[in-house]
Design a binder for these strands. Structure first.
Lengths: 256, 256
DNA sequence: GGCGGCTATTGGTTAGACCATACTTCCACC
DNA sequence: GGTGGAAGTATGGTCTAACCAATAGCCGCC
């Protein structure tokens, strides 16, 4: 396990005239380490589950102090490329970036970027959720469909009991997305739901009957999927989502 | 500017029997700082462009050492929430997460996650790029369309000169995505192109005529957009993308 | 044979120091 | 009087050396 070499261009050398015009030494040392390890992962020389040398080891190999190594590890950790465990046999373990962590980044962007409006977010969600309908109709297994119907039953029961929440609706949509059996799509769609939730919870107070209609639409959607009826499923989902979208637009208008 | 308070639960107190059963003190101090600052940003108490206190100041306010503060800043920086500048008037400035940085995360996930196959990536891209066609047809301005046509002209010229590259094709698709005038969609679609490029460059060597056909299809797509003909535009784009998709599938089959 | 404590490994944090960088101010020279 | 450069200063980047905290594994005792 002696892959990483000493970090090259960062030693901020005071080199005077000899060895002329060589290293501009721009980056941070920690960033250079991040780049190096990231590349090793991308090249497959470090694979998921593998353990990096201990921090003190890495210091020697890279020729930097522990502080610098630790900053590099924090960056890699923030990017979801490694996870760090303490204690004996602890250390930095290569992990495949989890969709959760990436989702957090996307979510931050959707929520915090002032150039992104709620309407845009809703629109993007619509593109994704409608786009997967044909795929879901094709790939959903009988068990998948049974699962969705079970969720509808639960939702009905919850409505009867007055305990229906927006989270249950979000769960339904997330589950549908999973039925595309496509990790990339699942990852992209996940982050949309939390911002959507916060934006919709208030709306539900204004229209408490909405949950009931929503669940009815959910069930009709599942039936269309069961029948592998792509146009019908698309139509139902579109109406369902656009009802939501119009609500968001109303709210963002009301705020203005 | 005295918003941040001392970081609470992390001082690993050795409290014996008094103050019983209180603080389990789980997290890392740096993570607690990150959470605190992130929350301030989300609440709008810190807004883009604003400058955090200097590292030494933050040490005092949070009651931790500089190393810890710096690790927190690295994490925030990795998440695109702040950027750090050196020199006088330097420091950590709040930034709105850039789509570039988020895109990098998504790209990492698409590239490195072994559970995501090239076929899935292609499929997700197809969903997005087809989904935006109606929006593009609706929103593209005359100037937008003229710009696309200019790109086609350039591409034709490049093909004649033998200098056409896959990057030019990717540029076309990115530009189309921008015409949806929806930042969320643009952010989601961007990261797909680099993995796609690497996957396609080899393919182009196997079929050098592909560029020519591709540009011809691009132009037909632009014409359909100009005519606001959604079905036609969708059909052209679908054929164009599926030709690409089949190529990726061939390649991933060939590898197996 | 099982259980509890000891020990070694490893990350987490601290303190203080020094260097590199970039903005500011001011002075000297033209 | 204006302009260019030099000194000053604030701030991030890095290093060193040390100690604390958590954990896995071993060893000895019962």
């Amino acid at each position: 396990m002696n892959r990483p070499g000493p970090v090259p261009a960062t030693n901020t050398a005071h080199r005077d005239t000899d060895d002329l015009f060589n290293p501009v030494s721009l980056a941070r040392a920690s960033q250079a380490i991040v780049d190096q390890i990231r590349e090793l992962i991308q090249d497959g020389q470090l694979t998921a589950g593998e353990r990096l040398p201990s921090e003190r080891d890495l210091c020697d190999r890279f020729g930097v102090s522990r502080v610098t190594v630790r900053e590099a590890l924090r960056i890699l950790e923030a990017g979801g490329l490694v996870t760090v465990k303490v204690g004996a046999r602890g250390g930095a373990y290569i992990t495949t970036p989890s969709s959760d962590r990436i989702g957090r980044g996307i979510e931050d962007y959707l929520t915090m970027s002032p150039s992104i409006t709620a309407v845009e977010v809703t629109e993007a969600r619509l593109v994704l959720e409608l786009g997967i309908v044909p795929i879901v109709c094709e790939r959903a297994t009988e068990a998948d469909i049974a699962g969705l119907l079970a969720m509808c039953d639960e939702a009905d029961a919850a409505i009867a009991a007055g305990t229906y929440t927006m989270e249950m609706s979000a769960d339904f949509h997330i589950t549908v997305a999973r039925l595309a059996h496509n990790g990339a799509i699942e990852m992209l769609l996940g982050p949309f739901h939390r911002p959507m939730l916060t934006s919709l919870k208030a709306a539900r107070e204004a229209a408490p009957a909405m949950g009931k209609v929503g669940v009815k639409e959910h069930r009709r959607f599942v039936h269309a999927v069961r029948d592998r009826d792509v146009p019908k499923a698309t139509e139902v989902m579109k109406a369902h989502l656009e009802r939501t979208a119009s609500r968001v637009q109303q709210r963002s208008k009301a705020k203005t």
